[in-house]
Amino acid sequence: MQTNSRFRAKKILGKILIYGTISLALIVVLLPLYWSLSTSIKPEKTILHIPIEFFPSGFTLSHYSNIFNIIPFSNYLVNSAIITGGTLFISLVFGSIAAYGLSRYKFPGSGGLLGLIIGARMIPPIAFVIPLYLMISSFGLLDTHLGVILTHCSIVLPFTIWIMKGFFDELPRDFEEAALVDGCSRLGALRVALRLALPGLFVAGIFGFIESWNEFMFALTITRSPASTTATVGLVGLLQTPYQIPWGEIMAGVFLFTLPIFVLGYFVEKHMARVYVVGTVK
């Protein structure tokens, strides 16, 4: 009996520890989000009120309509979407082809090349802001979508190659060889391999999306006008508003800006789970 109750006490303690840790992690992750949401719906007067209003006493949606008036925020969101889409397109297409080549063909220097690609990913981006700025400028791509897309690819592409090479390495060659014998060209065989490495494309795609959507530094250096400015740069720009910083509008913008990532996470998580289940039943 005694050992039984001690065992139960241990079990309860374990549960407390587990749930305690999870709750702490959730607070750390969700509190800023909650704060931006609650600030965005507080009436102007109560935002900087002391003592702090943890639960808003009033409710307004005016910040949400204002954000689109005081800055061209819809433009910024569209720019972000175009740049993220472009970055993903270039990175996934070229990244998976490059990864396929590195995985399937041995050529002189192929090992070193892979090391170089990973190495490029490890250098902090700030180290090549200036060279990249000069390059983009000499291409005449300053203040264009393509300019930002290319700088984002410098981060996302190496990671895509790395992830996809891992997935292709795991994939038996039999499938592609069957496709070659069945009548496919090399490119057709790559299509079969890509279909089988779909979970890898998802992982690389999600990473690339978050990386490009959130990116600030390169976008700040390359963009000038509303024609190419991204949402991150646009929102930070509001901090330079003279007289009074519009916190309500900033927080409304932040919340709108993070929304796509949550929506994506929700759908992709379900899809990823399905992909894994399919993958296990050989």
Partner: peptide, 18 residues
């Protein structure tokens, strides 16, 4: 391979799982 008009059966069968 595609132009040799051959067909192959693999040890692993290599059926396209999807």
């Amino acid at each position: 391979p595609k132009d040799r008009n051959i067909a192959m059966v693999f040890q692993s069968y290599a059926l396209y799982p999807y």
